[in-house]
């Protein structure tokens, strides 16, 4: 039973963990699974500066491997997640953070969803208001000439 549970855990690991892991070598990993998990969580927040669209946990680049090692050294030395991230952020700047901080330069980035949402809501509001306004303006009553023509047409079709 315990063996089955272990097998299930091992199978579930890569599925639940999500994303490919470049840390393949056991020598790269920390002995303590809790610390290793923390190192992975930190690594997934840090951009590989070489490939730029992968985290350092996913990248095969040399620099990413070096940074993975530094992250693990610092975790093992007892630093908090924020301290480890600050160490890398201090050297590589905002770009290294896959979740960019809110600054003047990133305001448009963070604000874009709210601007889009606001624009969409405004469009819906204006459209609904216009649609509601339309039936309110009742069509002008028919003039005597129009009434006469309508009667003539009805006469034609009745014949």
């Amino acid at each position: 039973m315990r063996r089955l549970a272990l097998t299930l855990c091992l199978l579930a690991g890569p599925i639940l963990g999500g994303g490919a892991l470049a840390v393949g070598l056991p020598s790269e990993m920390l002995r303590d699974p809790v610390q290793e998990q923390r190192a992975r969580d930190i690594g997934h927040e840090l951009r590989c500066m070489v490939c730029q669209n992968q985290s350092i946990e996913e990248s095969e680049a040399d620099l990413a491997r070096d940074l993975r090692r530094i992250v693990r050294e610092r975790v093992a030395a007892g630093e908090s997640n924020a301290q480890v991230v600050a160490y890398v952020h201090d050297r590589y700047g905002d770009f290294v953070l896959l979740r960019p901080p809110f600054t003047l330069a990133t305001a448009a980035l963070w604000g874009a969803p709210f601007i889009a949402l606001g624009g969409g809501l405004a469009a819906i509001f204006l459209l609904l208001r216009r649609r509601r306004a339309l039936p309110a303006a009742a069509p002008a009553p028919l003039t005597p000439a129009e009434q006469a023509r309508l009667a003539a047409l009805e006469d034609d079709s009745a014949r």
Binding site: M49, V50, D62, L63, D66, L67, I70, R91, Y92, G93
Partner: peptide, 12 residues
């Protein structure tokens, strides 16, 4: 080891 380069923020 490339550690000083990391302190400078070198990425290549």
């Amino acid at each position: 080891p490339g550690r000083v380069a990391i302190d400078w923020g070198v990425y290549g």
